[in-house]
Each structure stands twice: as structure tokens, then as C-alpha cells.
Design a protein around this nucleic acid. Structure first.
Length: 947
DNA sequence: CAGTGAGCGAGCTTCCGCTTGACTT
């Protein structure tokens, strides 16, 4: 048996190993740098080594090894890589520390992400080991069980921050990070120097500090920061090492603690006053308030309609022949100098004209007005003349390179990906070295990236499309709040792979996203698009001298500019809100040349009705855009903000009719939560809170303010949050905040309706002669709540009458309960005629429940009739006596579906087994004594995993 | 369990930002 040596890279941590295998399934590993004990290999994951019909399985703890080459003899050593011999020497040095001093010292470099570690390793001299900590390694206790027992009794323990003593935080090592920490501890003990190369922002600085706190290095440690991952930048940063900036760390700590105090103080108030498990926070509550606000605007929206006249005009009286070619479309702008109303003139909450518009003397044209006017325009003697022609050259600026938020928005708009999906795809592209880091708020391109983009532009579109060096996009506006730890999102490297070149390396979705990033990066370095916009007013002079002024506009592309990068893939974009001056969105594609005083001829006039539209619901992309504009949230959290709201059942996604996009609809619980917060804690739904926090944090970072003082002033004292929360907890009337003041169209004068949110979810209260409470779905939109649905709910509550049990004479109803459908047999003292006519309360008085039987989830209730119902009603079914125990064996339906049971032991009947009605004693006893076969369990798990 | 929304009471729920995980043969 021959021995083969494989060179193996751990893909994730970049440790190098040699693998020697003797037999196909025996894998021995010689670790290059670490003791054998620290490496655990298992065969849970198979990796093809490229040898036909042979598979090897390796795993370095949880990291996936990357098998770079096959036999050592065939190893293609790149220049600059280290020879095998050199490595062996290193290993010896490692294993005998006494001799190590003579060798060159080893430096441990810690960055945040493994992919970054991999890249940086390439740029650094051999004596450095680069590893990653995967973001924050410590955190405030996530839940009650992470709080140390000895502190649990203290009043502030729940917060995880000692608010009685300088806001001292309790830090715990996150569960999923303990392995990372152990690993780094081991490394730091065997190196001579520690370099903290985490991101250059508030969070990165804090991570560096936490690393020092946790690792307790006995060797010197320093901080290195760089803006871009290039050899030059990294080397430079290593020549300019600095200390950890404690002010910056304090700013981060203040941010972290503030968020905790806000969230963990307000959430419990929601539990007490509305329902358990609700949440509030600096970021999520702002987002939620926006969504709810928009929904309320939609509910209070009143539509208004108005008419306009559209004129098709020709250049010559012989319009029949050339109408298509040279015609133009214009719409009525004003009549006798008075402007016609458009959508903007109406108040969305009343549907009436706005005050200012009325004062202006605006004309609100109805159909009759339009038709009258139209007739007068058709009379002979009416002339049409061009009154004015105005030409403007407008340019549309090339976009700036992608940052996280704009990537998510464009990816949603052009590719239909959600923010989460976009980030997952981008992560893959990043890890495989196709793009730069995807969580960034800096739109800056490095010089090498600009050069690479320019090269692509020249090659693909020509030199004419290249932006001037002095153009503004070379120094894009950076958001005031940007922390600039990374550069913009762009294709990686010093020369960009074209989208075609990546086709075979990634999935189609990845390719699409890569192409979007590629084109945006190129576009950012291209010239602006130039348009000629022509704006024309045309007078129609009526017989009595009245003047109807029409307006039209046209747009011609003079220079395609950066649009070329997009148009060839995404098609030509028609809508440019920033260029259009028509509120009725009418544009002539090919406006003929016109001059002042020119006579025109009308060949078609038509009244057109327009209606105002309610403001659209937010899409995920629009919400992210709005939050980013307010400075709320960070690139790493945009995609998860919405997930939180969905998880809390505050918001659900709804697919708009006929469109691919999904819009965000607030649930009823969200309305009550926002009600409470707006009324009692208005700052938490206000984006201004984050803005002022950022300002304070900047001062802390600059050393102008003290972080403890900041927290103290916010949380403690007479006007602090703590005191306020206590007072509110006492004074907020739970009954009052539960009520949602929603306009409900219920046309029953004898009844009033209220929507409330209780601990078990939303319900409506019908108050008439008696009070009825009816559960409604949390997802039900206020719009859907009307007389009809309320009536349906009342009917549903009554249940469906199936008939009478011939044996007992009792009535059988099919009802829907908290746990699904069930059958109810009630004693019936009523005549069949009075069925459904009595109020529920009366019914309840007259009827006594004899028996309830639940139905399994898969029963088709639509087709359930009396006979079937009686069959279910016969459950539970006694099968007989178990000879082993002497107890009764029963078949029935329980909370988990059909089962057989005996003496406290229950076994579910899976599909494929005998039904509850058919199963006999023998089969049941067998099932109970040999509960679940190995085969069965495996099947169950397998399907779960697949899902 | 069988249409609750009040209260009893132990113990729990909850925040935002960094980052990548992902369990038997």
C-alpha cells in the first residue's frame, strides 16, 4: 500500500496540514502548526478529491478543508509559497519551544472574518498567523439563563447592566463563540506578538478591546487598521501600529448599553399592558412606526377623482396620413389662466381640494365640465397655436458605487431578491473572492478599483464614456453617519472579472448579483447621461376668446453615458421622475420639432378620468431606504430589522396583486404597540433619537463627553427612563391602550364595534344588547374589517349545524376552536326553526354541551356531514384490554393527532398505519409495546432535515 | 385544553451589531 501526501488547506482558518492516507478510508493527519490533539477529523462531510470513484472525508473541527492539490510530488508550488521543507522546520520549532527564541518570532493577527484572514495571510510575511474571531466574542447576557446565579437576585440583573454602579456591564462569552475563543487562546499562548486588525470603526475597536480582555495576552499587543485590503495598505498599517482607542470603545459600549436599557425597559411594559413576548427597541420601533403610520394614512385616505382632456394634435390639416408619425399628445394645463387640478391639489384625508388650491382659484374639472369644454373645442373656428417652447439640457448623474443599503434596494428592484437573499448571495461572492466586503456604508472606491473599472469601460464602451478625472463621482458624498471601515461593494481585485467570466463558477443567482455589482461599479466611473427636455405649451383659442392651455413635453437622449452599462442588460428605463415635469406622467417619445406661433390641428380629444391613489405600502427595499436616510440601523442589520418585526408578528409580507414585489402590512398587534409607544414613549418611535444618540457617541469618541455620564443622564434621575418607566407602568391604562381606534365600516346602528388586542391576540368586541367577543387573526388588515367579515365571524362562532344524533336527539355542530376544528354535541331544547336566530348568549343558556371531540388537522371539514361527524363523535374508542397490563387500550384523537394509548403510554398513528377507526387490539398492543422502530425515527428526522 | 381577555404566581419573554455556523452511520 503506497502512501500519498496531500497538501490540505482548511478553507476557513487557513491552517495548513498534510494528510497521509494508507487505506481509502483511513486518514491520518499531521498538523503543521498545532498539536494533533487540537484537530478533530470526522467523516461527516465528504469531499471528492478528484480521484475517480474514491471519496475521502475530512473535517478539521468544524472547518471544511480545502484540498488544494493531490500528491505532494505533483504539488504546484507557486512562487512565494513556502516549500515543504521550510514548513517542516517550522513545525519542529513549534513543538520545541525552548529552541524557538532563536527562530524568528511569530505574530498572531486577528481579523473579524475568515475570508479576510485568508486574503491578508497572503500579503503578510511568513512569520504571521492570521486568524479570525467572527465578530463580537462577548455580549451582554442574551437571556435569563446566561445571568450568573449570584447576581440573579439583584434588581438590575435582568438588564445585564449594573445601573447602580456606573453602568458596569456583565459580559458573557456568546455560546457559539466559545470554540473560537478557546482556539484563539491557544494561539495567543504560542505567539510572541498579537496584532488586532479588526475593522476600523466603533464596533471593530470594541471587538479588539474585548479580545484583549478575554485572551489576556502575556505578549505585547497592538492595533492595526486599514481601509482597503491591499498589500500596500496592510504593510503600511503594520508599520504604524497603535494602541486601542478607549474613547471609541466607550462609545460602542454606551451604544450597546443604551440599546439594552431601552429594549429591556420598554418591552416588559408591553408584556404587562398588551401581550407577552412583544418587543420595543431603538431601531425596530422606528421601523414599525413607519409601517403603521403608512397603513393609517392608507386607511384614512379618501380618493378623489378629476378629469382632464387629452388632445392629440397634428402638424398639418391632412392629419389622417401622418398622424402616427408626427402627432403629439398634450394634456390640459389651464383654462383661462386658471390651472386645472391634479392629484397634488387634493387632501388625501378628506378627498377635497386643499385650501391653498382653492385660494389659487384652481379648476376641479368633472365629467360634465370636461365634455362641455371638449365640445366647444371641436367647433369650427377654434385654433391651436404653440404658445411657448422651452428647451433644457438636463443630465442625469452617474450613480455612486454600491453600499449595503443601495445594493439591497437595487437588487430588489432589478432582480427581485429580498434583502436577506441579497446578503446571502453577496456573502458567498465575497468568500469566493469575487467581490469586496458586502457590509459597508462607504461608497468610496480604492484607486486600484477605479483603474480597473476604467479599463473595463474603455474596453467595452470606449474612451468616450469615461468620466473626467475631476468629476464628482470620484469623491462621492459619504453619509455623515458612515463609519468607513470598508470600501464600496465592487468586484474584487485589481482587474475585474467580467460577468461572463463568472458564469461557470457560480450559480445563476450569484451571477446576476455579480453582474449588478459589476455594472454599477462601471457606471459609477462613467459619464453622466445627457437629455434634451422640451417643454411646450399650446393654446387652444375658442370662439368666445377663452383660452385652454395645453402642455406637452418630450425627452430625447443626447448621450447615453452611464446608462449604457445598464441598458444593455436591464432594458431601457423609461421613468425618470427627476426629469419629468408632468404630474399626469404623459410623455412623448418623439416630440416633433415645434416653434412658437406654429399652428396645430386637433384630430382627437378625449376626457380622461384620474383618481388619486393612497400612499403605497412600504416594500422591504423602501423601508431600508427610509431607515438609512434617517441614519437608523447599520449595514449589518438592515436585512434583519424586518426579520425581527416578522418574528414578533408585527408585520407580514403580502404579495401585491399581479406584481412580484411584496409589501409590508402591519398586524393588529403592531397598531396597538405603536399606539402605546407614540403616546407614552414618543422618543422611541422617533428617528431623531438615533440621530441624537449618534451625536453623543461622537462626542464620547472624541473625548468630549463621558460615556457613563451620558448613560446616567438618559437612564437615571427624576427624568430618566427608569423613573419614567416605573411611573408609566403604574399609570398606563391597559384597557385603554388595547383599543385600536380604527374606522370600521359596520352598518349596524344597534351595535358598536371595537378592535382590541389582548394577551391571546386581537379580537373584536361587539357591543349591542349584549357583548360579544370574537377572535380575529392578527394578520387581518384593518381594511378587511367590515360588516361582512364581522357577520362571517359571528356565523363561524356559532358553528355549522350538521344535524341531530338519531340516538340521543342532541344537535351536532362543527366548530372552530383555538386548536383547530372540533365537533360539539349539545343538548337541544330548541325547535329546528329557531336555529341561528337566537343570540349566542341565549343559545348558551339553553344548550348544554354533552361532548366535544377534536378532529385531526387533515380532515376535510367542507365535506363533513352528519354521518361522518357521528363517526368521529364515537371516539374515544375502547379496543379492549391489554393482556400485559390489564388496562384498557384506547384509540382517539389528541393534541398531536390520532393515537392509540394504554396506561399512560400514547403512540401516534402515522399516515399509512391503520386509522383510528380500523385499528384492532392486537396491532395497537404491538405498537405500544414496540413504540418506534429505528427505521421510523430515522425517516422522521430525515424529512425534517430536508425541509 | 374547547372561544379566554380578571387574577393567582414561578420563571420567562425583550434590545442592537459584529460575524459565520449547520447534529449519528
Amino acid at each position: 500500500m503506497s502512501y500519498h501526501t496531500f497538501r490540505v488547506f482548511c478553507f476557513t482558518c487557513l491552517h495548513r496540514h498534510y494528510v497521509v492516507h494508507t487505506k481509502p478510508f483511513d486518514v491520518y493527519v499531521i498538523a503543521k502548526r498545532f498539536s494533533k490533539a487540537s484537530l478533530q477529523f470526522s467523516s461527516s462531510r465528504s469531499l471528492s478529491l478528484g480521484i475517480p470513484r474514491r471519496k475521502f472525508s475530512l473535517q478539521h473541527s468544524k472547518h471544511l478543508p480545502f484540498i488544494q492539490t493531490l500528491e505532494a510530488s505533483q504539488t504546484r508550488e507557486k512562487s512565494g509559497r513556502h516549500s515543504e521543507k521550510k514548513k517542516t522546520e517550522r513545525k519542529k520549532a513549534k513543538s520545541s519551544p525552548t529552541k524557538e527564541k532563536k527562530k524568528e518570532s511569530v505574530g498572531l493577527v486577528i481579523v473579524e472574518s475568515p475570508a479576510k484572514a485568508k486574503t491578508i495571510q497572503k500579503f503578510l510575511p511568513e512569520r504571521y498567523i492570521v486568524d479570525s474571531c467572527m465578530g463580537h466574542i462577548r455580549n451582554l447576557p442574551e437571556s435569563a439563563k446566561e445571568i450568573p446565579d449570584e447576581l440573579k437576585k439583584l434588581p438590575w440583573a435582568r438588564l445585564g447592566v449594573n445601573v447602580e454602579n456606573n453602568f458596569e456591564p456583565i459580559y458573557t462569552i456568546s455560546k457559539d463563540k466559545s470554540k473560537v475563543v478557546d482556539h484563539l487562546k491557544e494561539l495567543v499562548n504560542s505567539c510572541d506578538e498579537l496584532i488586532l486588525a479588526t475593522d476600523e470603526d466603533r464596533e471593530g475597536e470594541a471587538i479588539a478591546w474585548h479580545l484583549v480582555q478575554v485572551l489576556q495576552p502575556k505578549v505585547p499587543y497592538k492595533r492595526a487598521v486599514f481601509h482597503e485590503i491591499t498589500k500596500e495598505a496592510i504593510i503600511e498599517s503594520f508599520e504604524n501600529l497603535r494602541d486601542v482607542h478607549m474613547n471609541l470603545v466607550h462609545a460602542q459600549e454606551a451604544r450597546r448599553i443604551l440599546d439594552r436599557l431601552v429594549g429591556f425597559t420598554l418591552s416588559p411594559i408591553l408584556w404587562k399592558k398588551i401581550a407577552p413576548r412583544l418587543s420595543a427597541g431603538r431601531v425596530q420601533s422606528v421601523a414599525l412606526a413607519m409601517i403603521v403610520q403608512r397603513e393609517l394614512e392608507r386607511i384614512t385616505f379618501r380618493q378623489s377623482s378629476f378629469y382632464n382632456i387629452v388632445a392629440k394634435l397634428a402638424l398639418s390639416p391632412q392629419y389622417e396620413i401622418n398622424e402616427m408619425k408626427e402627432g403629439l399628445t398634450a394634456w390640459l394645463l389651464a383654462f383661462n389662466g386658471k390651472r386645472l387640478a391634479t392629484g397634488k391639489d387634493f387632501d388625501p384625508t378628506t378627498g377635497d381640494l386643499k385650501k391653498e388650491s382653492i385660494e389659487e382659484g384652481i379648476i376641479h374639472m368633472d365629467l360634465q365640465f370636461a365634455e362641455n369644454l371638449l365640445e366647444r373645442m371641436m367647433e369650427s373656428g377654434v385654433t391651436w397655436k404653440v404658445k411657448s417652447v422651452e428647451k433644457r439640457k438636463l443630465s442625469r448623474k452617474a450613480p455612486v458605487p454600491f453600499i449595503t443599503s443601495t445594493l439591497q434596494q437595487e437588487s430588489s428592484r432589478r432582480l427581485g431578491f429580498t434583502a436577506g437573499e441579497t446578503m446571502r448571495l453577496a456573502q458567498d461572492l465575497y468568500e469566493q473572492g469575487f467581490i469586496t466586503y458586502m457590509r459597508t456604508d462607504s461608497p468610496t472606491l480604492s484607486n486600484q478599483a477605479k483603474i480597473a473599472a476604467q479599463k473595463c469601460i474603455v474596453e467595452q464602451f470606449g474612451r468616450d464614456f469615461l468620466q473626467d478625472a475631476a468629476s464628482s463621482n470620484n469623491s462621492p458624498k459619504v453619509s455623515k453617519l458612515a463609519q468607513e471601515a470598508h470600501e464600496a461593494i465592487r468586484p474584487a481585485g485589481t482587474s475585474f472579472l467580467s460577468p461572463v467570466q463568472v458564469v461557470n463558477q457560480v450559480s445563476p443567482k450569484h451571477q446576476k448579483l455579480y453582474e449588478l455589482i459589476y455594472r454599477r461599479t462601471l457606471a459609477s466611473q462613467m459619464k453622466n447621461a445627457e437629455f434634451f427636455v422640451t417643454s411646450v405649451n399650446i393654446d387652444s383659442i375658442l370662439e368666445d376668446g377663452s383660452i385652454a392651455t395645453f402642455h406637452t413635453s418630450g425627452r430625447t437622449l443626447v448621450f447615453e453615458g452611464y446608462l449604457k452599462a445598464f441598458n444593455e442588460v436591464y432594458g431601457i428605463e423609461e421613468n425618470f421622475d427627476d426629469l419629468d415635469d408632468s404630474p399626469l406622467s404623459m410623455h412623448n417619445k418623439n416630440l416633433p420639432a415645434l416653434h412658437e406661433g406654429q399652428e396645430l390641428y386637433s384630430f382627437h380629444l378625449e376626457p380622461i378620468m384620474h383618481s388619486t391613489k393612497p400612499p403605497p405600502r412600504y416594500t422591504e427595499a423602501a423601508l431600508i431606504k427610509a431607515l438609512e436616510a434617517e441614519g437608523v440601523g447599520r449595514p449589518s442589520t438592515y436585512a434583519s430589522i424586518l426579520e425581527t418585526l416578522v418574528e414578533r408578528k408585527y408585520v407580514h409580507r403580502e404579495r401585491s396583486k399581479g406584481k412580484s414585489r411584496t409589501s409590508l402590512v402591519p398586524c393588529l398587534s403592531a397598531v396597538s404597540v405603536v399606539n402605546l409607544l407614540n403616546k407614552h414613549f414618543p422618543e422611541v418611535t422617533d428617528p431623531q433619537f438615533t440621530a441624537s444618540m449618534e451625536e453623543a457617541l461622537d462626542n464620547i469618541a472624541n473625548g468630549k463627553a463621558d460615556h457613563i455620564e451620558y448613560l446616567r443622564s438618559y437612564f437615571l434621575g427624576e427624568y430618566g427612563l427608569q423613573e419614567k418607566a416605573k411611573e408609566k407602568e403604574k399609570n398606563i391604562d391597559s384597557q385603554e391602550v388595547r383599543i385600536l381606534s380604527l374606522p370600521i365600516r359596520h352598518e349596524n346602528a344597534n351595535e358598536s364595534v371595537q378592535v382590541k388586542v389582548g394577551p391571546y391576540g386581537p379580537y373584536i368586541e361587539l357591543i349591542g344588547n349584549s357583548t360579544k367577543k370574537l377572535n380575529i387573526l392578527n394578520e387581518m388588515s384593518p381594511e378587511e374589517l367590515c360588516s361582512k367579515t364581522i357577520q362571517e365571524l359571528v356565523e363561524e362562532r356559532k358553528g355549522k349545524f350538521l344535524g341531530y344524533d338519531p340516538e340521543s336527539g342532541h344537535a351536532l355542530f362543527l366548530k372552530k376552536g383555538r386548536f383547530g376544528w372540533f365537533l360539539q354535541l349539545v343538548e337541544d331544547n330548541l325547535s329546528p326553526e329557531s336555529e341561528g336566530e337566537l343570540e349566542m348568549e341565549e343559545e348558551a343558556q339553553k344548550r348544554r354541551v354533552i361532548k366535544n371531540v377534536r378532529l385531526p388537522a387533515n380532515v376535510n371539514v367542507e365535506s363533513l356531514d352528519l354521518a361522518n361527524g357521528l363517526k368521529w363523535l364515537s371516539l374515544p374508542r375502547v379496543l379492549g384490554i391489554d393482556p400485559h397490563t390489564g388496562k384498557e387500550v384506547v384509540a382517539s384523537v389528541g393534541p398531536f393527532g390520532p393515537y392509540v394509548g394504554c396506561d399512560g403510554k400514547y403512540i401516534s398513528l402515522k399516515s399509512g398505519m391503520a386509522s383510528v377507526f380500523e385499528i384492532d387490539l392486537k396491532t395497537a398492543v404491538e405498537l405500544i409495546s414496540n413504540p418506534v422502530t429505528y427505521q421510523n425515527r430515522k425517516k422522521g428526522n430525515g424529512s425534517k432535515r430536508q425541509y
